[in-house]
């Protein structure tokens, strides 16, 4: 309403209109940019690198969605969020989607009114302890001091685990991962607990990784995935099927190297043809261009490539696929069919 009075001073900083609720996809297209909420810094999942570009597994999902909708994997505005601000940012419309290693839980789905578009990483909470403690099981941690990062489901799982096993502990809540690690290395806590993926990443950064061991117990289920607001099913579908396209692409052997080739003309596999838009009209059904999935895959590669590039065994984080392997290889990744 005060647009004219505000104009001179605030023009470039203020009032980027983005209607919450209705037709997010139209807003994104009109804006030409996808606003994607990510974490303020978790190596391997989302963190700006030395030259300031966002990198990581969650970041790759944002880029894939941007590529599917806008055709440009770089048309993303990354909005760093903390554990506290992420849900408000999403429900107030500041961001279009949240890809911030967020656990899919009942109350977040139903009470906070969010829609999880799927799971991009199956995680679970574990413990890291110094080898010198001689601890082999989390149940031996009776009386221990445990560092835990606040603002996640981690501290709830921790309380539940110790309560269930009827042993005591002393929690030390820490705001950032880096500070938790500092406390842990200084011996201010006996154990550090967070998602197992994070533990592996952290262990890799320690001075002597071999002096620390990750305990075998995984005390929780942490399906991490991108989420959107309730009430905009078209947008939810776009994010969900972009993620599915990445997973299916790995299953069918479509990679960033051969996707351009395969998308140029129909091939032998009808499923791949439908997904890449050389056959049928799946793109039209979802309200995007026919080559939406091809763009998403070309952005950074299929699921397997993204995994290997950001958090896989050849990276400092060095995670194995484990639960996150394709269903054909004993994992949980199972994309519904493209037909």
């Amino acid at each position: 309403m005060h647009r004219s009075t505000f104009y001179g001073v605030l023009a470039a900083t203020a009032l980027t209109a983005g209607a919450a609720g209705a037709a997010t996809v139209d807003d994104v297209k009109e804006r030409g940019k996808l606003n994607c909420g990510v974490s303020t810094g978790l190596t391997g999942f989302s963190a700006p690198n030395a030259s300031g570009d966002w990198e990581g597994f969650d970041v790759a999902v944002c880029r894939a969605v941007a590529a599917a909708v806008l055709g440009d994997p770089n048309a993303v505005e990354f909005v760093p969020t903390t554990g506290k601000t992420r849900f408000t940012s999403l429900s107030s419309g500041e961001i279009d989607m949240l890809a911030r290693n967020t656990t899919w839980t009942f109350s977040r789905d139903n009470d906070l009114k969010f829609e999880f578009a799927g799971v991009n990483y199956y995680d679970g909470q574990g413990f890291m302890v110094p080898t010198g403690l001689g601890v082999t099981s989390a149940k031996d941690l009776d009386g221990a001091t445990v560092c835990v990062q606040t603002g996640t489901t981690t501290e709830l799982n921790l309380a539940d685990f110790f309560r269930k096993n009827n042993i005591s502990y002393e929690p030390v809540p820490i705001e950032t991962n880096a500070e938790a690690l500092q406390q842990y290395t200084a011996g201010a806590c006996d154990a550090y607990t967070t998602d197992a993926s994070g533990l592996a990443a952290n262990r890799a950064t320690l001075e002597n990784p071999s002096e620390h061991v990750i305990l075998p117990e995984i005390i929780s289920k942490e399906p991490l995935g991108p989420l959107v607001r309730h009430g905009d099913n078209e947008w939810g579908d776009i994010v969900r099927w972009t993620l599915n396209a990445l997973i299916a692409a790995e299953e069918y052997g479509v990679t960033s190297a051969n996707v351009a080739d395969m998308a140029s003309a129909p091939g032998d596999s009808p499923e791949i043809n439908r997904m890449l838009g050389t056959e049928g009209n799946l793109g039209e059904m979802i309200g995007l261009d026919a080559d939406w999935a091809a763009n998403a895959i070309a952005a950074g590669g299929n699921y397997g490539e993204l995994f290997a590039k950001n958090i896989g065994e050849d990276t400092p984080i060095g995670l194995s696929r484990g639960l996150n392997a394709q269903w054909t290889e004993g994992g949980l990744l199972y994309s519904p069919p493209f037909r």
């Binding site: 501290e155 709830l156 921790l158 309380a159 110790f162 929690p171």
Partner: peptide, 15 residues
């Protein structure tokens, strides 16, 4: 609440 607090002057547990 579901979470534990390390320094509490009154009785408190995660329940």
């Amino acid at each position: 609440a579901g979470y534990d607090i390390n320094q509490a002057l009154i009785d408190y547990s995660s329940r």
